[in-house]
Amino acid sequence: MSGIRYLWSPAPTPSLPVRGCDARFPVRRIFCVGRNYHAHAIEMGNPIDKATMRPFYFMKDAGSLVESGATVPYPPGTQDYQYEMELVVAIGAAGFRVAEAEADRLIHGYAAGLDMTRRDLQKAGRDQGRPWDLGKNFEQGAICGEIVPAAGLGVPDRGAIALQVNGQTRQSADLSLLIWNLRELIADLSQFYHLQAGDLIYTGTPEGVGAVKPGDRLQGHIEGVGDITLQIGEPE
């Protein structure tokens, strides 16, 4: 609607670069999948039985998005700031109650992502039966690399995913170990939300999550998708 006046200027739309394109990917929402690798579920103390369970999700505000290569300050309120390396699916078309066989048409591309976590606050919320927001949804807590268009890649069902901290490998797994694959996740999530172009889905992290401190440098890689880097700065 033309002629709208705001009390102050709205925040700019968060966005990500797209490989081989001078236009950026505008980010609408960030969905995250919890415990989607068996070994990580076990290290968190909550094994998953796919036969009797379905995926579960939490969200991060789009304003928490940070591009790969940034330096972010160690966040407030935590003594246990942890990394989670993940494959990110970038949605490029609308879909609601989508069948698995139709999930491909919603995918615009993929990226390497870091779901940064204030683990002590997440665990406190979990143990008290409260939401995870303080542990998961905080400023500069969603790191993402460039979007790699899906054309030519298809839907990845295998490929190495790894993360190094200060040159030492901390996470190393394969996308084939996802409990729920990308088509299953899109189909399931679309039962609850009208997925829209600009949505991101962080698909879960393998085992090996751990704490970082100021001065640490994170370097991640997903085979066929790309890389991600992050520097941890001093607290504000």
Rank of each mutant, 00 (worst) to 15 (best):
R170M: 14
I179T: 07
H40F: 01
P214A: 15
T71E: 15
D188E: 06
M1Y: 07
G92R: 09
R19W: 03
M53E: 15
D104T: 08
I48N: 06
D22K: 07
M59R: 05
Q82W: 03
A160Y: 10
I48Q: 11
E139R: 15
W180I: 07
G224Q: 08
Y202L: 15
F56L: 08
D188S: 07
G226T: 05
E146R: 10
S64M: 09
T205R: 08
A99W: 02
G224D: 12
N166L: 04
P235F: 03
A90P: 00
H194I: 02
E67G: 09
D115N: 11
D227F: 03
P76D: 14
Q191S: 11
G159N: 11
A124T: 08
P47E: 03
R158H: 15
L185G: 00
P206H: 00
I201V: 15
V155C: 14
E102L: 12
S2A: 10
G113W: 02
R35M: 10
I143H: 02
P206R: 01
I228T: 04
L114T: 03
D216M: 06
L189P: 00
T52L: 08
V18M: 15
Y6N: 14
A62D: 14
L163W: 04
R126L: 12
A173P: 03
F192Y: 14
L177Q: 15
V148E: 12
A11H: 12
A23Y: 07
D227L: 01
A112P: 01
Q171F: 00
A101Y: 00
F31M: 05
I161E: 00
F56I: 09
Q79M: 05
T117C: 13
F138Y: 15
T13G: 06
I91W: 03
D120P: 08
